[in-house]
């Protein structure tokens, strides 16, 4: 791009008046702002861990992952690697195997997520074709070592057990919503 391109409009910064040029207004504005905050403002710090951050919408929150289970308690994941493909942080590591169940073909033998690498973007959840992986509302992850923060299949499944009541799977939510609607909707005879 050339600087004398006719399509470029040069925008001038606003001109300062005498007061502005003398630096006095800036001096006073800056000082009053800081002093005002120093003495007269309420502190916003939330003192974790005594005070807890409130998750407003656990279903939408992007925290620690969980691996969902189906009705028979088996891992829902079909080891398609789509989450690993979508993951921008390359933190999902799957080893697939033919499944031991007659109605399923493939399942993950190993499913590791490196929670330290994860950026909690939720792409894995979006990519999954069978709603097997989801992000829960757990947000305070701690561990004593890096290895501990690599969550394996068992750990991810146990997160599901802990959160399934509070944060049902999307299909269950949709199902419940449909049930509710059925209950409340007037029967066709009433509408007349």
């Amino acid at each position: 791009m050339k600087t004398d391109d006719a399509r470029i409009r040069w925008v001038e910064s606003p001109k300062l008046g005498m007061l502005g040029k003398s630096y006095l207004t800036l001096f006073i504005k800056g000082l009053t702002t800081t002093l005002g905050h120093l003495f007269f403002h309420k502190k916003v710090t939330l003192e974790s861990p005594e005070q807890r951050h409130k998750v407003l919408d656990p279903v939408n929150y992007r925290g620690v992952h969980r691996l969902n289970k189906d009705e028979q308690g088996r891992v829902k994941c079909v080891a398609c690697f789509l989450c690993a493909t979508a993951c921008p942080a390359h933190c999902i590591d799957i080893v697939a195997e033919p499944s031991p169940w007659p109605d399923r073909e493939k399942y993950p033998k190993v499913f590791n997520i490196d929670e330290l690498r994860c950026i909690f973007c939720g792409m894995c959840e979006q990519a999954c074709p069978v709603e097997a992986i989801e992000l829960t509302s757990f947000y305070d992850l701690t561990g004593a070592s890096r290895e501990e923060m690599i969550f394996d299949k068992e750990k991810l499944l146990s997160v599901f057990d802990q959160t399934k009541e509070r944060e049902p799977m999307p299909s269950k939510r949709a199902n419940d919503a449909a049930q509710d609607r059925l209950k409340t909707c007037p029967t066709s005879g009433d509408s007349s």
């Binding site: 600087t3 004398d4 391109d5 399509r7 409009r9 040069w10 001038e12 001109k15 300062l16 008046g17």
Partner: peptide, 19 residues
């Protein structure tokens, strides 16, 4: 009166830019 970082001489000369 302007705080931009164009070279001094140029900004004093005029406000007319090629564009």
């Amino acid at each position: 009166s302007q705080g931009d970082n164009r070279p001094r001489r140029q900004s004093r000369e005029s406000n007319i830019r090629p564009g």
